[in-house]
Every structure is written in C-alpha cells, then in structure tokens.
Design a protein around this nucleic acid. Sequence first.
DNA 1: AGGTAAACGAGACGGTACGTCTCGTCTTGCT
DNA 2: AGCAAGACGAGACGTACCGTCTCGTTTACCT
Lengths: 208, 208, 208, 208
Amino acid sequence: MSGATEISDPTATRGRGRPRSVAADEAILEATRAVLAEDGWAALTVEGVAARAGVAKTTVYRRFTSRADLAVAAVAQLVAAARTAPGSGAAEDIGNAIRACADVYSRPAARAAYLAVVAEAGRDPALRAAVEGRVITPARQIVADGLDRAVARGEITRGLADSRLDLLYDVLAGALLHRVLVREAEVDDDFIETLTSAVLVALRVPPA
Amino acid sequence: MSGATEISDPTATRGRGRPRSVAADEAILEATRAVLAEDGWAALTVEGVAARAGVAKTTVYRRFTSRADLAVAAVAQLVAAARTAPGSGAAEDIGNAIRACADVYSRPAARAAYLAVVAEAGRDPALRAAVEGRVITPARQIVADGLDRAVARGEITRGLADSRLDLLYDVLAGALLHRVLVREAEVDDDFIETLTSAVLVALRVPPA
Amino acid sequence: MSGATEISDPTATRGRGRPRSVAADEAILEATRAVLAEDGWAALTVEGVAARAGVAKTTVYRRFTSRADLAVAAVAQLVAAARTAPGSGAAEDIGNAIRACADVYSRPAARAAYLAVVAEAGRDPALRAAVEGRVITPARQIVADGLDRAVARGEITRGLADSRLDLLYDVLAGALLHRVLVREAEVDDDFIETLTSAVLVALRVPPA
Amino acid sequence: MSGATEISDPTATRGRGRPRSVAADEAILEATRAVLAEDGWAALTVEGVAARAGVAKTTVYRRFTSRADLAVAAVAQLVAAARTAPGSGAAEDIGNAIRACADVYSRPAARAAYLAVVAEAGRDPALRAAVEGRVITPARQIVADGLDRAVARGEITRGLADSRLDLLYDVLAGALLHRVLVREAEVDDDFIETLTSAVLVALRVPPA
DNA sequence: AGGTAAACGAGACGGTACGTCTCGTCTTGCT
DNA sequence: AGCAAGACGAGACGTACCGTCTCGTTTACCT
C-alpha cells in the first residue's frame, strides 16, 4: 500500500475527465492535521478524515492508500518547513538545527504521527520509501548542509564531515527524538547548549 | 486502559476464588512475542494472541487491558534481560551498553513493538506509566550504572556524572533508536567505536 | 438439561455432608421472580439471579440446570396456587376457573416467563417433562375437576365430560392465553361471561 | 430494538448511495427459516444466519435489529400465505380457517419461533408493533373475512358478527395454539369437527 | 470431640454471541 | 470522469453469560 496516487500534481498529464479538486486536496490534509492534533494517531481514520473534510471516502482513497500515507504528507510538510537560516559558526548552526527539529517534533500533529508512522513503515516497503524520501532524507540534509558550511568556513575538514555525517545525524535527531517523543521531556536551552558543545568537542571544533 | 491487572502476582493477597493460571500467563506472552516477530504491530490482535496462546479472549482481558499493554510486557522482559556485565573501563562499559541496547532493539518482537508502543503511550497515561516504569527507567538505569562505575574508578567526577546522565541517556538510546528503528541501518563495530569515543571525548575521559 | 436436581427435598436420603441451605432455595426463587417481573425473560440469567440472591453461581447450578428450569419452578408455584373453590353450578365453576387462570397469566413473573418457557420446552425433552408435569397437567386438572363436579350434579353425562375434556381445556386455556399473552387484551367480565355461556351452549348445559 | 429498517422497500426515496441487495434480503430470510426449522429458536443467532446466508453480519444488522425481528419476518410470510379460499357455508369456512392456521403453526420455522417471538414482544414495543401488524392482525382478518361471508349469506347477523369477532378469534387461534404449540398434540379431523360444531352452536348457526 | 463429606462464597477457565466499529471495495445517480 | 452517498464482505473490538472448574471455608452428621 501507500505512496500510490498522492496529491494532485498540476504538471501531470492533465488526463481527460474532470480534474481533481484542489480544494479537496487541502481539506483532506487540513482535516488530517486536525484529527492528529486533537485525538492522536489511533483516532486517525480515513472515514473520520473524509467526514471532517466534507469529502467522500472514495475521494480520499483516490489520493492516499492508507492513513499512514495521509500522515506522511502532513509530517513531510512540517519537515519541509524546517530548513534553517545559516548561522555565523558551527555552534550557532547546530543550535539552530536542533531547535528547528525540536519545533517539528513538538507540533501536535507530528507528535501524534511521527513514531507511529515510522513504526508502520517497518512493515510496509512503499510507506518506508515515502518516509525515507519525504521525511528522513530532508532532515538528514539539514545536518549535511550544516557540515558543508562548517567545511566552507574551514572549521572541519571535508573528510571528517563526510565520515561523521550519519553518526551526527543519528546523534542529533535521535537524542531529540528520544527526549521529545520517547521521554516526553522538554528541550530547554541548557539541553541544546550542552548537546551542542558536546558535539563540537567530539568533532574537535574549537569553541568560538 | 492499560496497566490494569497485569500478570499474576504470587505475593498478592491470594484472593479467594480460583487462582490465575501461570501457564496461561506464559502462553499469552509467548504468543504475543511470536505474533509481533512474525507479523508486526499492526497484526497484533487480542483475538489473535488468545487463539495462538490457546486461551480464551477473556483470559487475556483479565490480565491486559489492550494490545499495547500486552506489548509492553513483552518489551519489558527483553529490556530486563539486557543488563550488562561491568567492563574494565568507561570505554568498554559504554560499548557494552550500546551493544546490549542494540540487541534489544534488534529482536524482532521489540523492533515491531517499541516505536508503536511509545507512540501509543503519548495518548494513554496508564500505558505511559507502564512504559516509563518497565522500559524507560530500566534502560536509563543501565546508563546510570555505567556512570557510577566510572565515578568509582575515578574516571569522572560524581558531579559530572549526575549532570550528564539524562543527556547521555538521550544520546545513546536516541542515536541507537534512530539508527536501528528509524533509519534501519545496522549497528556495526565502527558505529559503536566512533560513538563510544565521541562520548568519551565529550565526557573528557582520557582514552585508555 | 433441566429438571435435574431441583429444589431441596427434605425427605431425601440426607447424606452426610452439609445440607442444602433452605435460605438459598428461597432467595434464588425470590430473585428469579423479581428479575422476571422487573426485566422479563430475556434478562433472566443464572448469573444475575445468583448475584441478586446473594448466592454463588454454583449454588444455583446445584439446584437448577438452566434458566428455564428456574422459571418453571416459579410458574409452577403460581399454577399450584390457582386451584379454585367449587361453585354451585357449571356456569360458576367455569367462570371461576377462567378467572383463576387469568390471574396466573397476569402475574408479572408468569407473563414474562410462560410463553418463553413453553417455547423453550419444544426443544428440550427434560424441560418439556417438567412443564408437562408441573404446569400443564395441574391446569388441565382444574378443568377436569370442574367437569367432574358437573357430572356429579347431573349437568352433563360422564361420557360427554370425558370426550370433551381436552377440547374444553384447549379452548379455555388457549382463549385465555391468546387474549392475555398474545394479544395483550384485558380479561373483563364481559369476556368471561360470553366465553362461559358459549362453552355451556356447546356442552348443551341448560342455563341456570 | 426491532422494526428499524426492515426489508428493502422499492418505493423508498431511492437515496443516492448503492441500493440494498435484493439477493441478500432473500438469502437472509431463507437462512433464518432454515436455522429455525433445523435447530430451533435458541440456535437462531444473527451470526449464524449471516454465515449461512453467505452475508456479512453488518448486512443483517442493516435490515433487522435483532433475531426476533428476523423471526417476525419469517413468521409473517407464512401467515401471509395462509389466506383461505371461501367455502360454501360457515361450517366449511371455519374448518378451512382452522386448518389454515394449523398449517402455519405446524411449519417447523413457525413452531420454533412463534411463542418465543410473542414472548419477546411482551418487553419490546417495536417488536410488539411488528408482531401486531404482521402476524396478529392478518390472522384476525382471516376470521373477520369468514364472519363477513357468513353475514353475506345470511347465516348470522352483522351485529352478532361484530360483537363476537374478538372472542371467536381468541377461541380459534388460542385453542389451536394451545393444542399445537403448548400441548404439542396433533390437530386431527375429529378435533376440527368438534371445535367447528361447538363454535357453530355457540354462534347459533343451524347445522348444514 | 474429631473426622469426614458436602455445600458454600469466590472467581478464573474456555467458549459463543453479542452489537459496534472501521476497513477497503463496490455500485449507483448526480454534476 | 469525478464526486457524494451508501451498501457490501470482512473481521476485530470489548462485554456479557454460559457452564465448568478449582479453591479455601463453613456446617452438619457420625463415629
């Protein structure tokens, strides 16, 4: 299942019949976000989303093949909106990236959906691909961009950046995910600073 | 829901009626593990578990209030079995701890259940408490024990250990969780070594 | 099922163990009547009766083998209490008999149980026998006694009485049952008088 | 419960969605009849009927609100098929009516369901209304038609017919019901003749 | 007075069916 | 051809009782 038809693509071949309703597209995603935020993943139902969007079930199924597919779209939008402005140094870049990620994870809709979608992806290759392409890779790119800037500024070497990218991504995203979604602790300035400086030390970047 | 009656407690007041069947206890948990490993979280059904355990549905409901409750018990057993032997130094201790955690996360049953259960716990206080007490706290304790040993050996100070415990737990558990369950990458020796040495550097423990 | 152990019989061999509790006997029947009167046949459960009687389920099952068995006992008591005083003539006898039967059918417990028990008896030989012996035969006897008195008074011949007994029983009991339980109409004096005189005409008994 | 949606009504507003399957209608009623005839009222379960009809449980619940509702439809069909051809005189008419009723009560499905449904109707107003409209009233009409014909032939007066209708219905239906369903005796020619002539005498119709 | 046997309460056991819910698919008629 | 509506087969939900089975306790009788 999953990832089949997806959202209406205006550049698509514009087949013959009646065109997909863009209003329906938006109403469905909006309803999805609302349900996730208000009642959580377990309450996210194709039936319920359709009702809330004022749309027939078939109209939802034409675009998404499952509730997980629906949720991926919502989370993907939030991740896409998380790109950060470059800072003046590695410390600032890392802090910004952490804060950006924390913001995403803290949105009610993402809070409700993130872990559940990832869990479901473990069994569903199509969903797995969708999560990979629309959530994991973009987030990894944020870290990659930060390292690229550090290389450009001469703070670390290209080789170190490349060899540490995945580890750094696992550490940053994982620590955040664990703190916010698993332990449900807050992400305060102290946490961000300590994590940032620990990462800098491990990367052997001299403090500013 | 969740956390209601739980498994038969032999120290309980030994109420008057017929005692709970210990054989049923075990059959249920075993069936739960099997279903999770074979078909994943989405296929975990009270009905299916009961059938597989050769037990009536009511017998399951008498012990667990939901499938999440069921899964927590399974995961908790795995976590409980994960305590590590103390090593000869901080580096070895950390490596052991990572390996122990990685082993747990890699078990098919845990793989299928962990994220899903944690996700569900976000909406269910009773389940949340069960996860907290039976999974999160024990795992955190593994890290705490490691730090205690490092303090005993004089590798770090008591103050540093205390102030860094939660961060270290988030980093270790989070990085692992992210790598194993979110990205579905493998945990090889290189990953463990690099993560270990990065952590040692951040804790300012001199290399052995 | 049904009719197995039945109510405590004081003349029984009086085995060694603890004797049946007479208080339980009565509490069970009383609870049965109450449940039938208040909530009807469908709500009559062994579990509910036991709870209401303040008695364990096993205690009920030791005496009755089913809820139908339970109900038969209640109805039987009512029928047993329905014997009529002899009147001064056939007309009075018949009127009395009709009134007596109508009283029984109108009791809430009997209203709720009678048809259902008879229906159930169609499939259960043991229950059938119990109904036959404790409800149908005693009721038939009321009609037989009435005819015997008419014969004794010379109002009809022995032969006519014997040949018409079953028909008369079917007509009287059936018409009443149909009116009270099937149609749920009331049994007023007009009904009784008209039915009585029709029966007298059919039996060719001259009016008094 | 009961009497909610009922069988597909072709004259209904013909709303927009997919129409009810007429094949399902028939399969359900046929399965109901079969179960009643083979295993009796106690074995009549919505679950079993659905399985036997090769239909989903929801499909049954969309049409009938309970097993009693289901049974009423079956009994109603039998009653509807029981209209009698007019005979040449009151005696023949009454004999025909009794035979027609006896045939209905003797069908295995009706035997199993009639008393139980009527009993259940005592507690359920909607079911009561259904029984009233689809079983009791049609059966009463058979008697009413017979009396109308007798009036038309000049055998009895209009006034007598009207004043005796309910009594006659109670006597005929009740005697039959009592004999066939309560006492489980057979309805032979002798019974029919004796009952018929008794009724004629009571109505003061001269014998043919 | 002590033993023994049965009834007692409590409550868990494997089951069946309940009536509800949501799923994803399949008609239908309207736009 | 897209859409809203809604019936369809499927199957899990959690609950209620079923009738059976331990249990530990109580009560009477019979040595």
